[in-house]
């Protein structure tokens, strides 16, 4: 409980969950705001400008799915969704609506802490650094050049765009829809087969084995997560 790591708003109706979240977050130096209802959460969010919002999807007064677009109307605060629903479509809906990440209940506290760190880091503007490193992978965004372990890698235009999207959103789940919209445009948000083919190509270029990828992790039924710091063998 030394320096303040930031303010976190918990919107969750279940008191025991709020309690352990508060204790563990405070132990990490966060200031914690709690809201039991979605309405109160929205108010606190507007007044206190938290650094991260942890949102439960099942609220007594409103569905969490309604909460996200409401916040996104005026704030880009990272939102991490908590849900007992293991249903993929729920997660995709939340992510598409603008949530940054999700954690499925029940979860270990370290998992949530890791997500909070990622969310905070991603929010800090990357200052458009020209050269981004991710393990042995290096991308020069100004010169559109890619190296893997010092060797130049040649990518097609689409492959490069996809990699750029990933590297700008590291450690974050991107839904199929989000990727398709960014790389192919809004008319192709349903053409997931394009995406599967392109992912296959990109993995090949990055030396990823589809059955055990280092960089591009498949989240079944949801999308992909780009790992910025792959474990080195």
């Amino acid at each position: 409980m030394t320096e303040s790591s930031g303010t976190i708003l918990i919107v969750e109706d279940d008191a025991p969950i709020r309690k352990f979240l508060r204790i563990s977050l405070e132990a990490h130096g966060f200031r914690v705001l709690e809201a039991r209802l979605g309405r109160d959460g929205l108010e606190l969010c507007a007044e206190e400008h938290p650094d991260v919002v942890i949102l439960d999807l099942g609220l007594p007064d409103m569905d969490g799915q309604e909460f996200i677009p409401e916040v996104r109307g005026w704030s880009s605060v990272p939102i991490i969704v908590l849900s007992v629903r293991s249903d993929e479509t729920e997660k995709v809906t939340a992510l598409d609506a603008g949530a940054d990440d999700y954690v499925t209940k029940p979860f270990g506290i370290s998992e949530l802490m890791a997500r909070i760190r990622t969310a905070q880091r991603n929010r800090k503007p990357s200052a458009e650094t020209a050269r981004i490193k991710a393990g042995p992978l290096e991308v020069d965004l100004t010169r559109h050049e890619v190296w893997l372990g010092g060797e130049p890698v040649h990518l097609s235009k689409k492959e490069y765009e996809l990699l750029k999207l990933f590297i700008n959103n590291p450690d974050r789940v991107l839904t199929h829809r989000q990727i398709l919209r960014d790389v192919w445009g809004p008319t192709h948000v349903r053409d997931t087969h394009y995406l599967r083919v392109l992912i296959g190509h990109l993995r090949q270029r990055l030396g990823d084995i589809p059955s055990d990828p280092r960089y591009i992790i498949t989240i079944q039924g949801v999308g992909y997560r780009f790992v910025r710091e792959p474990e080195t063998e």
Binding site: D14, P16, I17, I23, S24, A27, V84, P106, F107, I109
Partner: peptide
């Protein structure tokens, strides 16, 4: 899962951060 979330969350908090709490 709801009570399990609290149980797992609380116990993992105790295990990992007890020194800070």
């Amino acid at each position: 899962r709801t009570p399990l979330s609290s149980i797992i969350g609380s116990s993992s908090t105790l295990l990992e951060y007890s020194s800070k709490i």
